[in-house]
Design a protein around this nucleic acid. Structure first.
Lengths: 341, 341
DNA sequence: ATGAAAGCGCTAACAT
DNA sequence: ATGTTAGCGCTTTCAT
């Protein structure tokens, strides 16, 4: 049973109100008294009871806003599940989580969503930030107003956030390189279906893969890279074209969305069992293709955790004034094959 | 703002005490009244506030006991970390987690630990059960006394637990088989360093591996299996002997402990780079060996989650009377290679 | 600057 | 069987 505010008050010979003010840095308390109270608290190893704190603060609910590029991208379903799990856990602490979903990567649209959240008043924000200075500046202005910010899944340089929660993209690319080496016996002539070259993370992913192939599997190389912009139609067209142009290819990698469209092209050319195919994440089409043996492996980045941790970190910052030790929290990268999916 | 007990009391024209009794199935309340109260609660979608509930119950602390075979097995360090993380989270809810560690798999020793916990009084128990009817019966007698039980990492048939939290051992073996196929090009002549044939889980692991090799990689087979009993000295001796006896072998798999000793034998015979080597879990020696390229892959079972979830499930059962939907909660199996470790 | 007191939603001891 | 009341540990008015 750790000491309570009441006990400190008794020892310090002040009222509980004063102890509360002193310990929480609230105004209107004598410096000397504050110091004494803090010392007593420290000496007895006092830890505030978060449950009691939450109950007392319950009157005016705290709000955590979320802006997420989830529309039309099944990857984010698990991220949202994580967000909702955290939401349920902290609801009774008087914290409300408000989610705004968006489609695609338009900065002005994202800006609108941030502002609409800000207008209704918010204490913290979790966001998958679009790479644009508009967003960066808006987030920093929120931070200046005392709003706690976490970026998740996508990092954005220059934002004064509490933390980035997501994968290490370079490492995810290296892991891909390693699996390609294993599966092809080091002899991969690889076609890459990428997202768009505008996203730094996705560029790094390709670099990671390239570096491993070059260093460890010199008989392998990336033959061609196309940009499918997470769009199945584009992926279909461009994959088809790429496969026809590069008859020497024997492996494909889907770095982001468009897997469904790209695989259709492979199927129509009768290459399903001739190619070694690799993907990222665990969307329904990926699961299905792995089970059928069409896709050899996929690399996951703990989407549920990305959502869950983002909210829990903000909660911890709001309620307990506790910040994570590092500001880059990398979720695990996990390889899934046919048998552990 | 969901309704409160106070509001229900007002609508039902009874006191808050009666509402509390009715909603929690406590004795001493008229059937008719109880029914009416429940209906009102339901109609307004009432959810009890767990924070307030915890604070009110705070006076007599709840106790969750833990019995874990962790001594001398670094695998369990992460499991313990998960247990402690959960412990910190629920401490302010007035729930105390008391951990008893033990070494090895002696049923009578485990029985003593369970009983010593029971004597001090406990509301729930998380345990890595030794496969013995002594343990099974003792756990069931606790269950009969109203103690909630979760088994983690090891399953034990016949125990009326809330849940088993751990990996699917057969699947873990299949995953091993899949990775062996990838890395060796389907041509593995495998030596297995197992734990002991007495543990059902570890038997299933071997069966899973064998089934995949047989079905998918007919040029592969298990040449020999030795039992190292999680002991490095035994592992060293037996691995050495096995390697000398089976010159045709080209791959090794460490299914449990003893990795350090076994690898020493491999090193001394100068086979480190000639063999493809596979392990389970992520102990320091495994991490080191993977980074050096000596071990090709390891298969992890989310040890942290096993500890964390076990405690959280018991907490949820105790505080919110909420049971998991399924009684087998399988943690993810994840493949780690050099680049995503 | 400090103290006193009310109250967050619930439980539990005590009355009736 | 039901109502009343005190209190869990903390925050937040309202006095002083």
């Amino acid at each position: 049973m750790p000491g309570s505010i009441k006990e400190i008050a008794r020892i310090a010979n002040v009222s509980r109100g004063t102890v509360d003010r002193a310990l929480n840095g609230r105004p209107g308390v004598n410096k000397e008294v504050a110091k004494r109270v803090k010392e007593i608290a420290k000496s007895m190893g006092y830890k505030p009871n978060v449950v009691a704190k939450a109950l007392a603060t319950h009157r005016k609910p705290t709000i955590i806003g979320v802006v997420i590029n989830s529309e039309g991208n099944p990857f984010f379903d698990d991220v949202l599940a994580g967000i909702n799990a955290a939401k349920d856990e902290i609801f009774d602490f008087g914290v409300n989580v408000v989610v705004k979903r968006m489609k695609g990567y338009d900065p002005t649209q994202q800006l609108d969503l941030i502002r609409s959240l800000a207008e209704e008043g918010l204490d913290a924000l979790a966001i998958t930030p679009v790479s644009d200075s508009l967003i960066r500046d808006e987030l920093n202005s929120l931070v200046a107003d005392g709003v706690k910010v976490v970026c998740f899944n996508l990092d954005l340089a220059g934002v004064h956030y509490i933390a980035y929660v997501g994968c290490d993209y370079f490492k995810s690319g290296e892991t891909l390189g390693g699996m390609i080496g294993f599966v092809t016996g080091g002899k991969a002539l690889l076609g890459v279906i990428a997202c768009t070259n505008n996203l730094e993370g996705h560029r790094k992913r390709i670099e990671g893969c390239r570096s491993v192939l070059k260093r460890e599997y010199p008989e392998s190389r990336i033959v061609d890279i196309i940009e499918a912009e997470d769009n199945d139609e584009i992926a279909y067209e461009k994959t088809m074209k790429m496969l026809l142009e590069h008859q020497e290819m024997n492996a494909l990698c889907f770095n982001a969305g468009g897997t469904s469209g790209g695989l259709r092209a492979v199927r129509e050319l009768g290459l399903e069992n001739k190619f070694k195919i690799f993907t990222f994440d665990m969307t329904p089409v990926v699961i299905d293709s792995i089970k059928k043996g069409i896709v050899q492996s996929t690399i996951c980045q703990q989407p549920f955790e990305q959502g869950y941790q983002s909210i829990k970190i903000l909660f911890d910052a709001l309620m307990n004034n506790h910040l994570p030790e590092v500001d880059h929290i990398y979720t695990e990268l996990n390889v899934k094959i046919r048998y552990n999916i």
